[in-house]
Design a protein around this nucleic acid. Structure first.
Lengths: 224, 224
DNA sequence: TCAAATTTACTTATAGGTCAGTAAGTTGAT
DNA sequence: ATCAACTTACTGACCTATAAGTAAATTTGA
């Protein structure tokens, strides 16, 4: 929250050569954030201890508190950092357009297969966030909401439907749910599910169905 | 509040009375288990405190420990109790056959809409269980595995396919993932998703596809 | 030398588990 | 039927970790 970074204006020549105190600080903060991802991912937020985060970042837990103020603030910072990192990972980044976005999602699923830590961080924290007064509740609510909008939009664009159609929105929700749900199964048993294969197939079917049965849903819904 | 046990003097020589003191004990244990479901559901296992469980069951935390030995054992007992309860809720119960099972699943989704507590208990604990050394890990692994088998079997039966086909198994995994994933979204925002509607539609599509394209998958997979 | 970074040393909570004791049964021999 | 011997179901007090947060001292770097 409070961007207490009242620090001086960042010197534009902050090359890698001269590690100014603040340049170095940024690196340390990042170390802490990475450590937080690892610890909160492996243990969850509640059980994850600041001492362990600190250790992995090479300092004491008081040092971590110095940088982030509180455990809660650290979690929030970590979540934002993770978003930024994810966005930065993609070349075209930002808002990938149309079908490319679906492809990008699939790529992510494939990549995730090689980094259970990241998957676990997301899975554990998102589920934990539904508990009473969890600090990440707003974050995940917003994230899911935004993702749903985004996917519905892309789906509409790809299939020539309207993003407001309940069928399209339902499919967006379903796609997100599928990916999240698969992660839990996969984390509990890596060999039990082939995430990329399943997601790809579902995406194909879904786009196909939406495209083929163009204007209206195929069956009348008695209840509604 | 505590020792109201002295109240109704149990008629010792009155025929079909519960012979053992365990009759009452069983009830108390059940109280504790229900309390555990509520507390662990709302706070998760790690943050859920024994004192709170105890309070809700009308005893002290030492009393809870007397019955269950440890917090971990309590969780395991709770999970088993939950299974038993769920099974008991269904009349025909045990192994519902064929298409009836899919209907039963859908009914459950519909019922769940009215009891967020139960949904939350499952959602939070299953995700939490993927963390290092979590006591419920085995439980959820087994549960998901069994459910996958069951659904694959039912799907095979309904559509005339083989339960060993990877497509059928994938669909079983996907269906479970869908339901679990939707729960997270729903718990974070009740109005964001209509769980029963989505699950019903997906089930329909899924059965339809599996039935229509009978023997073999429709398209050759270039990469594999 | 000044300020930020970081440590050391505490404080304050919380929480699981142990333990001795007690009240209310239960059982068995007389 | 009664009473001693024993068991069960607890409670209250206590112990021990663990963990977050704070304050003051110390180091480090420009």
């Amino acid at each position: 929250m409070a961007t207490d970074t009242s620090a001086s204006a960042p010197p534009e020549h902050d090359a890698i050569r001269k590690p100014k105190p603040q340049a170095r600080t940024l690196q340390r903060r990042e170390d802490v954030l990475r450590a937080a991802m690892s610890v909160f991912g492996q243990r969850g937020y509640n059980k994850g201890a600041l001492v362990e985060v600190a250790e992995q970042a090479g300092m004491t837990h008081a040092g971590v508190l110095h940088h982030f103020g509180s455990k809660e603030a650290l979690l929030v910072a970590m979540l934002q950092y993770r978003d930024g990192e994810e966005a930065a990972g993609v070349p075209g980044r930002a808002q990938t357009e149309g079908p490319a976005f679906l492809g990008h999602m699939l790529d992510t699923v494939e990549e995730n297969t090689g980094r259970p830590g990241v998957v676990q961080t997301y899975t554990v924290l998102s589920a934990e966030s539904v508990t009473e007064g969890h600090p990440a509740q707003g974050y995940f609510r917003d994230r899911l909401d935004g993702l749903r909008d985004k996917i519905a939009g892309v789906l509409a664009e790809v299939t020539g439907r309207d993003a407001d159609e309940s069928e399209v929105r339902d499919d967006a929700s379903a796609l997100i749910a599928l990916m999240d749900g698969l992660q839990v199964q996969w984390l509990l048993d890596r060999d039990a599910v082939d995430m990329p294969r399943i997601v790809e197939k579902v995406m194909d079917e879904l786009v196909d169905r939406l495209t083929t049965r163009h204007p209206a849903p195929p069956f009348p819904r008695p209840q509604d």
